[in-house]
Every structure is written in structure tokens, then in C-alpha cells.
Design a protein around this nucleic acid. Sequence first.
DNA 1: ATCCCGAGGG
DNA 2: CCCTCTGGAT
Length: 213
Amino acid sequence: MITEEINREHIKKSLAKLDEIYGVTKESFYHQQPWQLLAAIMLSAQSTDKQVEEVLPQLFNRFPNAENMAEASLDEIEDAIRSIGLYKNKAKNLKKCCQQIMEEFGGEVPEDMEGLLCLAGVGRKTATLYRSDAYGIPGVTVDTHVFRISRRLGWATGKDPVQVELELQDVLEEEHWNRINFQLIYHGRAVCTARKAKCGECVLEAWCEKKMD
DNA sequence: ATCCCGAGGG
DNA sequence: CCCTCTGGAT
């Protein structure tokens, strides 16, 4: 029982520090309509947001809405996103996703998890982040950074992202759900890196259990 | 468990 | 040169 209380206190202090260092809000990807936001998040898989933002203006200029992309050729979509990497899979998924939006959802991106998850190229991470960004719906988005860091800190022990998501939902106040993702991403890139974490520079070190992989 | 895959960092 | 990057599908 005592360990749990100490743990919660550590988490509380860590969260306050994260708010202080990285802020409590973040700009979403540039977009003018829901499907553009979804497309941007899909493109961000295994690549940096900077790379994504670089292709978005041209991409959306060429394909303003889901209908345009649903009817486009794969080659054309690939050309527009090639610099991001994983471009073949992403182009194929984008096209299929847009076709599904047109044919199964009347041209509108579904808002519920079930609808989003049946779209090509949309998994749990993408769907949760989309709902958070587009509508402010509370959700813990577990990507590689959140998975790695929350386990190192001792906030979660699950062996897969879904387990960790449930643990974090339990241990974090709902108010923090939508900001923990970008806060831990910033922290993961700058300090708590996958390899050779810079624990000496970490503002959370005092409360971290350092359960390294 | 593997593949995808260009760009940028160490 | 080698490594990793806000995953998802097979």
C-alpha cells in the first residue's frame, strides 16, 4: 500500500514537471478538414513530424479532400509523400482509407473508435490521437515513446501498448490523458531516448524507477 | 516475428 | 557507416 502511495506521489510530481517543461497544449498538424488531420497522423507513423509537415501543403493542394485521393493513382500519391519513407505502404493505405471513407462513411471520417479502426492504415495509436486532436476526446495515445518511458518511470508494466494504455488510464487523471502523449514524445526525443538515455539531465530522475529495457 | 523506407543524427 | 524514427498489416 505504501509503495502505491509513493508511486502516485511520484507520478503527480512528474506530471507537474512535464506540464512546466513542455507545456499543456500542442498544435495539431496543419489541416483544413478532418480527413486531412487523419492523413497527417497516418503519415507520421515511424517518421518525424517535421518530415510530415514538409509534404502536407503540396499533398493537400493536390488532394484537397478524401474523394480526390480515393480516385488518384498510387503513383501520384507516392510521389507526393516519397520523402517521408514507408511511402508505398502509406500511399496504398491512404488511397484505400479514402475509398472506405467515401463508400462506407458517406464522405465523412468516422468519429467513433470502431469506425476509425476499420480504416486501412489506422490502428489504435492513430485513432486515439485523431480523436484527441480533432475533438478533444480524452484518450491515452500509446506510441513507442509513451510505451517506453511510462514503463521506465514505473507507471506501467504491461508488455503491449493496449495493456499500458489501460494502466495509464487508471493511474493518470483524465485531465492529463491528451497531453501526456506529446509531453513524453518531446521528453523521449530530447532526454529519455531509446538508447543511452540521458538520466543525468532528466527533470524526472528523482521520481523515476529507471526500469530500463 | 517481419517488412516497409527516406532522412537525419551520431 | 550504422542507427532510429509519434505504426500498421501480414
